[in-house]
Design a protein around this nucleic acid. Structure first.
Lengths: 222, 222
DNA sequence: TAGATTGTTAATCGATTAACAATC
DNA sequence: TAGATTGTTAATCGATTAACAATC
């Protein structure tokens, strides 16, 4: 889990918004969304808190408690409607819209991400790809033309890019991050291992499969 | 974060082990390990709880508290020695050794994982690759020969595979998982979106970049 | 009705944080 | 000495869980 919010804004409350969710609640709601999205793909119409618990490793009481804080979304004796719960949680997280991503690095990892619908399923669209290799610039990966890094600023503002995803080698990661920061991007998803230095208003999420494995392994060995 | 431990074993306590770590502590220690590993690569010799906090988004008091529970690893006015802290945490997590991974799927994602040292840095070694495509079976990806799925059981027991990493299309994920379970593998790392059904003693970690993004986005939009 | 599952309460435990003395 | 940072305390807040009535 990533805890990314340095300074909860004091003062002005958004009119439409109620309270800001706690880090834990927001993280758990996101997990529910993931499972619900897949459950829908599998043609499931209802899902119980017990089933959600099995897939998320989150206690079923906790799940019911999280949800009941926002309304009565379930049917006793039946469970939750997959479609309707999906919609409710999206409303709560206010992430119903379409959000644009720029992808950096057109190597194996970049291509894997571009061709996957792991982001698309949750309303994120890869709208641009970048690479430093002149042989790749101008070629097409799926629907996307590979841009040169020099076009970064222009693409970010024209396409309203909200998230930059780094699938570049570690050595290149900091430079790309710097450029994204200059272009005003506030969320960076880092698939390299490099520790990135960014200003406090920018959130970096570093992907860490090995860390997750270490964690799982501890409980396996212990 | 993945919470994966269903039934804490009652009764018998391992002689060498003290208490089993709580889920939260184990997860945070793993994060520290990640940052320390990178800090060492960057040639850093000491690191303060403040710096660790900046990279992990975990409160610095929390970090000092976590560590001081196991010993006095730091020097006041200086910080923690990167090498020594790395070693201490590995001891605590009892994950110092070498652990073997089998990788499934030799496509873009599989190749990206095989050629990355994101696992190797933490003592995980990819010892075998598998693919269903007859054209790929027998070819080499880096140092690794691509095996046919039929060899799964033999390879797992010969190479003492502890973790199976799935980089296959969603449609194939459940079948590979079933075979891994049959072969006795207890930890599965799932890069597909498919929800996997496994027996309770097996831990599945599903990679969820989009979920992490949704979470970051909430705090950005809110 | 009988079985299943939600919504909610109440009680406990661990996480979080500010503050600060100890000490490098 | 002066500055920095650990180790630790104490106080608060949120997470977790079992239990169960309500109700589909």
């Amino acid at each position: 889990m990533e805890q990314s919010v340095a300074d909860p804004r004091s003062g002005i409350e958004s009119a439409s918004a109620g309270e800001r969710l706690s880090l834990g609640v927001a993280a758990r709601l996101s997990r529910y969304l993931q499972v619900l999205t897949q459950a829908r793909k599998m043609g499931k119409e209802t899902i119980s808190s017990q089933e959600l618990a099995a897939y998320t490793h989150i206690n079923s009481t906790q799940i019911r408690r999280d949800l009941s804080g926002f309304g009565k979304f379930g049917k006793r004796g039946v469970g939750y409607g997959v479609d309707s719960l999906l919609e409710e949680i999206r409303k709560i997280l206010r992430t119903s819209g379409q959000h644009n991503i720029a992808l950096f690095g057109a190597g194996n990892l970049g291509q894997a991400i571009a061709s996957s619908d792991i982001f698309a399923d949750h309303g994120f669209q890869v709208v641009a790809m970048f690479d430093i290799d002149p042989d790749l610039v101008g070629t097409k990966i799926g629907e996307l033309v590979v841009h040169d890094f020099d076009q970064l600023g222009a693409v970010v503002s024209e396409q309203q890019v909200v998230v930059g995803v780094l699938a570049v080698p570690s050595e290149a990661a900091q430079e790309v991050a710097d450029r994204l920061v200059d272009a005003g991007v506030k969320i960076i998803f880092n698939y390299s291992e490099r520790l990135l230095k960014v200003p406090p208003e920018v959130t970096v999420h570093t992907s860490s499969p090995a860390v997750d494995l270490l964690y799982a392994l501890y409980f396996y060995l212990a």
